[in-house]
């Protein structure tokens, strides 16, 4: 059996380090497997090296997390106990500091009052709403128990969608329309997922088209109404968004009534 020198082993381990450290875009797997077959000890060295790197990375992540938690504590401490003024210079500054403190207190009281009033009236302060805050439709509702030709593709699309890989989900969905049986039976969930996927990818016109395909008698229609409203919101069409959100927020028992009110408040508060 050939023996591999320490220098040769180091060559392979350095490749692993360079890859993990972002200095190498890929390792030559074929070369690794060939060398491992030839030199069994290399397998052990690679395993020990990769396990070491993982342990170090995990330890680093724990340390980083501890730093973040410490930063929370430091903020809380500094807020709870402002440093006491000391010395002559501070005595001169003290009256100004007191005035500043009172002013900040009044501002804080004002904003706290505003926040409480917002909460009590169910409104949210007027920050732009991020698309990341938007919930997707339930993946369970989108799943299908049907045994149709398109079933496998559909499940793949749901899987990609649930992992927020919207581009892959859309690619799979676009290959489905040829299966008329599936579309006839599951038009609602198909157009809903296609609409939301396009919305996530900011293809607003395509999202609108897909969601408009859901008929008012379809069980998914209430969800389509919601995503049509937010499509208008995120596309910047404030007039349409306002009109749709007004309808939804005024409809008792609508499943997104409160959310619609929140988006509407944001639009009207601009």
């Amino acid at each position: 059996m050939d023996l591999m020198s320490d220098k040769e082993i180091a060559y392979y381990l350095d490749q692993i380090d360079d890859y993990l450290n972002g200095k190498l875009s890929a390792v030559d797997r074929a070369a690794f497997h060939k060398a491992k077959d030839k030199y069994p000890k290399l397998s052990q060295d690679i395993d020990a090296h990769l396990l070491s790197r993982r342990l170090i990375r995990e330890e680093g992540e724990k340390e980083l997390k501890a730093k973040f938690k410490q930063a929370f504590k430091e903020t809380e401490t500094s807020q709870a106990r402002p440093e006491a003024p000391r010395g002559l210079a501070n005595n001169v500054v003290w009256p100004y500091a007191l005035l500043l403190f009172i002013a900040l207190g009044l501002i804080g009281y004002y904003f706290r009052g505003m926040q409480q009033s917002e909460i009590s009236t169910g409104e949210i302060k007027q920050e732009p709403i991020l698309m990341a805050e938007l919930d997707d439709p339930s993946y369970d509702l989108l799943r299908s128990g049907a045994v149709l030709a398109a079933e496998d593709q559909w499940q793949k699309a749901v899987s990609a969608f649930s992992q927020r890989d919207y581009q892959s989900a859309l690619t799979i969905l676009q290959s489905l329309p040829s299966d008329k049986d599936f579309l006839q039976k599951y038009a609602g969930k198909y157009h809903l997922m296609k609409g939301v996927t396009n919305l996530r990818l900011k293809n607003f016109a395509d999202a609108e088209t897909a969601l408009q395909m859901i008929e008012s008698t379809n069980p998914y229609y209430d969800q389509a109404e919601w995503y049509l409203a937010v499509t208008a919101y995120f596309s910047g069409d404030s007039a349409t968004a306002t009109s749709r959100l007004k309808v939804l927020s005024s409809r008792d028992q609508y499943y997104r009534q409160a959310e619609a009110g929140r988006y509407l408040s944001q639009l009207q508060g601009k």
């Binding site: 993990l20 690794f32 397998s43 690679i46 395993d47 790197r53 993982r54 990375r57």
Partner: peptide, 14 residues
């Protein structure tokens, strides 16, 4: 495993 470590699992036995 992070994504890069996962990528290297194919050359790992343990």
């Amino acid at each position: 495993w992070d994504a890069k470590e996962k990528d290297l699992l194919s050359i790992m036995d343990a």
